[in-house]
Write a protein that binds this DNA or RNA. Structure first.
Lengths: 260, 260
DNA sequence: GAGCTCGATG
DNA sequence: CATCGAGCTC
């Protein structure tokens, strides 16, 4: 099974790039974040034309997540919070009985701000959701834009960025607890060396060439799946195409035998 | 000499279409209206790369006219009104001693409105400019988006549109006086039958296929040039391309012998 | 329907 | 740098 995650920064603005990429890579499942579109306006047809189905949890202008898959899904869940989500940042479903959670974690604005607290709250709630409902011995995938770089090798300037939003001890500690519970970072498993990024700020000139990026997008898997992850890679070239998102694709392949 | 006029509805938005068209048609001179860009931001390079020179009279966001030519021009004039123009709607220059006036006449909003009066004032001032400075026995071209359909055959529904802005007796009367003075509509000369249009409103679904257009773009020439006009045509296909302007190209060819 | 500006967000 | 509205024009 080939799974990818992509913060599109508008699924409509990224439609040509996305369609080209799907045509070439043909993943079984693509998790998209920052679709920035209401469900009624999601360009479903463009994906259906390529043999994909779309489940979307969107809102106007901001956030929005979607599951784009070749096979149907079950057990769709659109809300992380028991009160119902005010922002479209969470979407989970099962594909061939493998539960997949797609998240777009709040960026957090500034350390100490109310938005930063919301970010921590979101991560804590997601962690509780995972630990309450799943077991590390069973298959589970949690993936998307977590908006946190876990280790110093996951940012281009760990000293300079230490304590900044996205690389602050408090966020990293919460993310660490996902790992401690039993979620494995499948990209890290295949690339322990670091210096690989999935996001480069538009505002930094030539950020990709200058390797001024962050690794904030993840595919996390419990042990039975992580064990079967045969490959994981970041499509840096897709960040160099015309009209790119500020993120790029993270891909993982799982050897699931006949069942997947 | 091959001359074309085109209301681009943003020269920047139309850059791919324009460049493709120039590569294919290679006119000696292209008159553009609604460039919608300040002179400093005009994409001059894209035209220079194809062997064209650009003279532009632009403003921010609205209006804007330009002369795009393979040969240099002389006697550039950027203002129609003696007080200096507040809107970028007029640009004239001489090419091989043939004076060419490029205009974007105000659309006029609604009959009876102040903008409609401005439109009539613009047309009257242009007529005075022409009759004061030129003679019908000498070469002169006046072309561009005149925003007036002269005759019933120049709109898709003459009965329904009678009296509407763009097809009102008062505007048509002023335009008629250009003809009476000695300017000839070179497209009409080759296509007396009517039913040919240069503009189709974006808001009318399938307007081109349904032939729901207007002929409001013109190439007018004095007798010594009109006599030599060997061909004139409207490139309807260019209105059917992806991301078209709401207008399309009007082209005329003149047999000028060695001198042009 | 499709350009434009502007102020917002990241 | 590149999204998004809103409000404007044609």
């Amino acid at each position: 099974m080939k799974l990818a995650t992509y913060n599109a920064n508008s699924v409509r603005a990224r439609l040509p790039l996305l369609c080209d990429w799907l045509r070439r890579e043909r993943p079984d499942l693509l998790l998209v974040q920052e679709t920035k579109v209401r469900d009624e306006a999601f360009p479903v047809r463009d994906f259906e034309d390529q043999g994909y189905q779309v489940v979307s949890r969107g809102q106007k202008a901001y956030n929005g997540v979607a599951l784009i898959s070749r096979r149907p899904c079950r057990r769709i869940l659109r809300d992380l919070f028991s009160e119902g989500d005010t922002e479209a940042r969470f979407l989970s479903a099962s594909f061939d009985d493998i539960p997949v959670i797609n998240v777009y974690v709040p960026q957090g604005f500034q350390v100490g701000s109310e938005k930063f607290q919301d970010k921590l709250k979101f991560l804590e709630t997601l962690l509780a959701h995972v630990t309450d409902r799943y077991r590390p011995e069973k298959p589970l995938i949690v993936a998307g834009d977590l908006n946190v770089a876990l280790e110093p090798v996951d940012v281009f300037d760990p000293e300079g960025l230490e304590g900044e939003v996205g690389f602050h001890a408090e966020e990293r500690a919460v993310l660490r607890r996902f790992m401690d519970w039993g979620l494995h970072d499948v990209f890290r498993k295949h690339h322990p060396e670091g210096g690989h990024f999935t996001f480069w700020d538009y505002r930094v000139p030539n950020a990709v060439k200058r390797r001024m990026g962050w690794r904030v997008d993840y595919i996390l898997a419990t042990e039975p799946l992580s064990r079967r992850c045969s490959n994981a890679w970041i499509d840096v070239a897709a960040r160099m195409l015309p009209k790119p998102s500020d993120h790029t694709f993270l891909v993982a392949e799982f050897d699931l035998g006949d069942s997947g």
